[in-house]
Design a protein around this nucleic acid. Structure first.
Lengths: 202, 202, 202, 202
DNA sequence: AATGAATGAGTATTCATTCAT
DNA sequence: CATGAATGAATACTCATTCAT
């Protein structure tokens, strides 16, 4: 009659805990997050959490890694397979990608990395390998192809894909810190892409 | 025998403690910083530290605020008083400013704000008022003056001074996280300024 | 493929668990022993273990009691039934018994009792009744019979059978603590018996 | 007016804490001892305890080592300096020593070592070096001197000083486990010494 | 003013025990 | 009967803050 005191749901637990942890880490940062709160939010006991994650730190790392978005891989693939002109790709899929990222969990992960990265170089490495490096490669490929096709001039942008992503980065930080201060981050990126294209178009 | 500690002016104490605290906060973040370590590094006792700063949090806020750089005010003044053309100012003092910031303590403060800002909105306000807002105003003024003088076209950049600073932001983050990965941040900013100017010049 | 575990008789389970528990308690002591490890070593689940033993403490007590050796009873019987002279019995079966005990599980039980006995007086009582008391009685009977037969003098040893066993006790402790430090415990007991006999022989 | 909330007594604290800890460890054993109870009994806060002892284990080791009795050294010295005959020394100071030890804190330390020694070999080493080894050396010296002087025969006891101490060991264990069961441990040792002397006297 | 000994609330982690499956 | 996922009380240790000296 009474509610069962608990459910056995071995398969789902890690995912549920990880999601709850992400929310709490996002809201409070690593140090200020209490394991107990994560457990409560996941609807499990502290003990169970420790059954799936050996330490708070391991939980943190698992959470960070779990957010590695498929989006970045998708971008790489899209660059290779698209039939759009390079300019059209920049104006379309790439711009869209740049607008999405600052709204996505990746932005939160970046914040956590900025806050905790010094003490977790392996996490930074992981993010470099699986996210940042791939994203930059995608941009670089796109620019190179544009140059090969005669769409773009051969400029310093070729070696500096970061230049394309700079306003995305700024938008991420902006949203973290200055949410309520007005900044039309979409327009920021529209304008930036406009400017870049004007600069590199043949 | 001992260091002539007693010669230190009492008036300097808060400053010395604050400097020591900045170093430790910078290295470890807020939570992982122990008040005792700050005191030790400042060469005072814990008790004395608490005489000047009522809590660790107050110390943190004082430290953050103490780093508010004069550089930003200087930039504002320079924009108003310069006799350079707008383009020359951008290529000269502004570019120099942008290259300096990511190497300066401001970068560290930004990291601390990103990490702790959510729980300290007043600190974010403070930084907004005293640093960010001023910096953006300076850029905006510069662009407006260029337009007034007929040097620049009237583009979206007028309302988006952030666009000018975006690569500076990216460089700051880059240095925090990916120090050892190669990126010529100076060239990044050179190119960006080149690009911006190409875009807005009449 | 798998071990034919299912062939094990259910009736053997408590015994198997108890044996596994003995090994772990012996290696780690009461507090440091985890029930889970006992279960694993016994090849059963934790739940099943708790079906047979209501608590860890009950398991501990059962284990301790299960080691009550038959050897002691055998010694008593042997004393009564032997046809050897008292001296011959001392030099033969008794000496052999004394040499065996420090190598036997009883030694481990004694260690566990020394460590945990204060909190488990009932265990100590049990061991007193079933092991120590019996052993001492056997020695006392032997000495008395020797006196009755005129083989031995009537000395204080009559009321102090512990005197005979003292080096056995020392050997047990020695092996527990100083395993690697050289001590020929067999020779110790040989000499001791020699000495005792010299003392009590008529 | 009100009682001061605490006293600063830096010098005395380690000693006080160590004594309190000895009592609790003695009563409960290592694992069952709660650091908080030690602190309470010492009349200090948990935090202060950790100021003087980095971990519970370090506290335990310090406590064990602090009990290293001067008695053993005294025995060694006495053996060397005495003007008594060897027999008189055995019947006098040595017998007295043997009767005291089972009543002294050393007995408790031995129990703790028996219980915890396996996990703390360094403690066992320490006790070997500072107590056991010295005690055995003293006995051995005594026997050797007796032989040199022609008081004693040259028997196996020369290489087995443990034989002399065996009933002391048994008495220690007896008191730990079977306190209330009658055994006149003093008489046990009287008789044993009698027996030994009868055996080794020339 | 200055010190640092002393406090105690707060937190990660463990593990005996239970109970849904 | 059997399992092992789930619980939660227990406990070592930390560190911001206080206050007797």
């Amino acid at each position: 009659m009474a509610e069962p005191r608990y459910q056995r749901r071995k398969e789902d637990r890690p995912q549920e805990i990880s999601e709850a942890a992400f929310e709490v880490f996002a809201a409070k940062g690593y140090a200020a997050t209490r394991v107990e709160e994560v457990a409560k939010r996941a609807g499990v006991s502290k003990g169970l959490l420790y059954l799936y994650f050996k330490t708070k730190e391991e939980l943190f790392k698992a959470v960070i890694k779990s957010v590695v978005t498929r989006r970045v891989d998708a971008l790489l693939v899209a660059v290779e397979e698209t039939e759009l002109s390079s300019e059209a790709f920049v104006r379309g899929p790439l711009l869209e990608f740049m607008k999405q990222i600052p709204r996505s969990p990746v932005a939160i992960v970046i914040r956590l990395l900025i806050a905790e990265g010094q003490r977790h170089p392996d996490l930074v490495d992981y993010y470099w390998d699986n996210v940042v490096s791939k994203g930059l490669t995608a941009i670089a490929r796109l620019v190179e192809r544009g140059i090969e096709r005669g769409e773009f001039r051969d400029t310093a942008v070729r070696e500096l894909p970061q230049l394309v992503l700079a306003p995305m980065m700024l938008s991420m930080i902006w949203r973290m810190l200055f949410t309520e201060r007005e900044l039309d981050t979409d327009k920021l990126m529209d304008t930036h892409i406009e400017m870049i294209l004007a600069y590199i178009k043949a």
